[in-house]
Simulated scan of single mutants.
Amino acid sequence: MKKVMALGLISALACSAFAVDPATLYKKCATCHGAKGEKKALNKSNIIATMSAEQIKTALEGYKAGTLNIHGQGKMMNMQVKNLSAQEIDALSQYIPTLNK
């Protein structure tokens, strides 16, 4: 029983150690979208700071799946988000709308 409890504690600590930091994730996005999501990436994209968390999540999932191609940016965005986990997408979706506040 002690081994099970110890394993559970170790797992919990490991999960918290690898918690998603959306600010760090967003640094990659900021190159094109601006520090506060205020720019049209390559003068083509929507201004992401004006999007809701749900809209951002839907867009990121679509780009990741390769099914979204807004303003012809599908391939480039797919390359940017294809390795994001569902947890990272969710974290970014919640974080981006807070940048403009």
Rank of each mutant, 00 (worst) to 15 (best):
M1P: 11
M1L: 11
K2D: 06
K2A: 09
K3W: 08
M5K: 04
L7P: 02
L7D: 01
L7Y: 05
L9E: 06
I10A: 14
I10P: 02
S11M: 15
S11F: 11
A12I: 10
L13S: 05
L13E: 05
S16W: 03
A17F: 14
A17I: 04
F18D: 10
A19I: 04
P22K: 05
P22E: 08
T24W: 05
L25D: 04
L25G: 05
Y26S: 09
K27W: 11
K28L: 10
C29W: 02
T31Q: 14
C32D: 01
H33T: 00
H33Y: 07
G34I: 02
A35G: 13
K36R: 15
K36E: 13
G37P: 01
K39P: 01
K40L: 08
A41V: 00
A41L: 03
L42G: 01
L42N: 07
L42R: 11
N43F: 11
N43E: 11
S45Y: 07
N46G: 12
N46T: 06
N46L: 09
I47Q: 03
I48K: 01
T50L: 14
K57T: 02
A59R: 00
E61I: 12
E61G: 06
G62H: 08
K64S: 11
K64D: 08
A65H: 10
A65D: 07
T67S: 15
L68H: 11
L68S: 14
N69T: 07
N69D: 15
I70N: 13
I70D: 12
H71R: 12
H71C: 06
H71G: 01
G72W: 10
G72M: 05
Q73W: 11
G74I: 05
M76D: 03
M76I: 10
M77G: 02
N78K: 15
V81R: 00
K82C: 08
N83W: 08
L84N: 04
A86C: 05
Q87V: 09
Q87Y: 06
E88Y: 12
E88Q: 13
I89V: 08
I89K: 02
I89R: 01
I89P: 00
D90F: 04
D90C: 03
D90S: 14
A91P: 01
A91T: 03
L92I: 07
L92V: 03
L92E: 02
S93N: 05
S93R: 00
S93P: 10
Q94S: 12
Q94I: 05
P97G: 05
L99H: 04
K101I: 07
